[in-house]
Design a protein around this nucleic acid. Structure first.
Lengths: 232, 232
DNA sequence: CCAAAAGTGTTCCGAATACACCCATGA
DNA sequence: TCATGGGTGTATTCGGAACACTTTTGG
């Protein structure tokens, strides 16, 4: 074991993870927030968080709390930032590792789990006061999501397996919070090789019906690495 | 204090910071590495690291270790990633927060401090084996530096107050590791508003001498926020 | 006078942008 | 038949990329 432990001022610290969860609902980008369960500040709005157990990695802890909430594994997740200020938590010295994730709001059990925890989806421009430095975390996460979305195909993580171009367009409008020209969007996406056209149509949103697509996983991986300009 | 502390498996953990230090030497991007001083693995090459004291923030800890080494404050520094795998350190469970920084190799005292610690600058393609997961950290840092350098004016952090366009070009060639057309580079940079031309010339590298510039701090800050395409 | 680095303009191409109408269909 | 969302093509502009010669001066 490390000699450092012998020194008085080098002491282990509590480590937490907090998770900024984004989803698209009603063509708007939303944030999932929770009623905090532990003191201090129990009952206030908060991000989903938990302490890191000593027998799990930090990443695993983040996956665990998301799993406990959503029942889903393999959720898209990015480590955001370590928040390590001295006074960030009045309950004691806690260092928090923030993650953000994108989830498909319509997925099985999600509705149920969200209801059974005290949670709700909120628009990004109507976020209530959050405990501790959670507001900072959310702002950094939004900036990070937008930055990432400009060059990596993350928009797809918010959609179901099969989706229409209109849905995809709305996801990007939700992320960037401004309107996108549909002709340019279609042209670019269809030429990107990211989309595999299906023969089925989705008739739920229009009389005419619109073609469904799914992702080309191969191209997806490639563009994730190389980067691609998703600025519109 | 948190109830969580009562649970057996939620225990405080040791937190360390590790710092990936980049500098430009002989027109090449280099990494500063150190002989590790603590067991286990004392004597092996390593990044500069230290434990986080309980009376300092994580960011402060990172600044402290850089200050102890270089004697410099206000060094450009970015938090990179939290490394929290269970088995990353054979000496015990340690979570490490990695930072990378850019320093001006020619600065006062730096040479002295580097020599007095057992440290050396190495080319990125000749990095020896490093302890623990430090190699991963370096690779992530290089990727992060290149990504950042494409859109933020970070190249300037590696140069002295006054510099020539040739020096700046070489910094970018060093970061991106490929040659850049000097005419396009000059055009773009001179139009960016980032450079304030001085009347002095630097004659150390050529008979003709080349004009010196300094940064326009105002534009620098602005472009840091808004982003600017530094891809060449 | 020559070697070595500094400095300078133009053309070309591709990608992003702006923009307006027809189509299919269920109600 | 009409309201609703789906689908399509072209012209323009801007920025990035490619490219070669002249200038200065210390040695």
């Amino acid at each position: 074991m490390y000699l450092a432990l012998l020194y008085e001022n080098v002491r282990p610290l509590l480590i937490a993870v907090d998770c900024i969860i984004f989803g698209v609902q009603d063509t708007e980008l939303k944030l999932l927030i929770f009623k905090r369960e532990v003191e201090p500040l129990a009952g206030a709005w908060s991000l989903l968080g938990s302490f890191v157990n000593r027998d799990e990695s930090v990443d695993t802890a983040a996956e665990r709390i998301l799993f406990e909430l959503t029942g889903l594994e393999d959720i898209y997740m990015e480590q955001l930032h370590c928040y390590g200020a001295l006074d960030r938590d009045p309950g004691g010295r806690v260092v928090s590792i923030a993650y953000w994730s994108l989830i498909r709001v319509d997925q099985n059990h999600l509705e149920f789990n969200v209801r059974s925890h005290e949670a709700k989806w909120v628009s990004l421009d109507k976020i209530p006061d959050l405990v501790l430095d959670h507001r900072d975390m959310v702002e950094r996460a939004i900036a990070n999501l937008r930055e990432k979305a400009r060059f990596k195909p993350v928009g797809f993580e918010l959609l179901p397996e099969e989706f229409t171009l209109g849905q995809l367009l709305k996801v990007y409008e939700a992320i960037f919070d401004h309107p996108i020209d549909s002709r340019n969007f279609r042209k670019k996406l269809l030429n990107s090789g990211l989309l595999i056209p299906l023969t089925k149509k989705d008739k739920s949103t229009s009389k005419k019906g619109s073609f469904l697509y799914k992702f080309n996983q191969e191209t997806y991986r490639q563009l994730s690495q190389e980067g691609y300009n998703f600025g519109f």
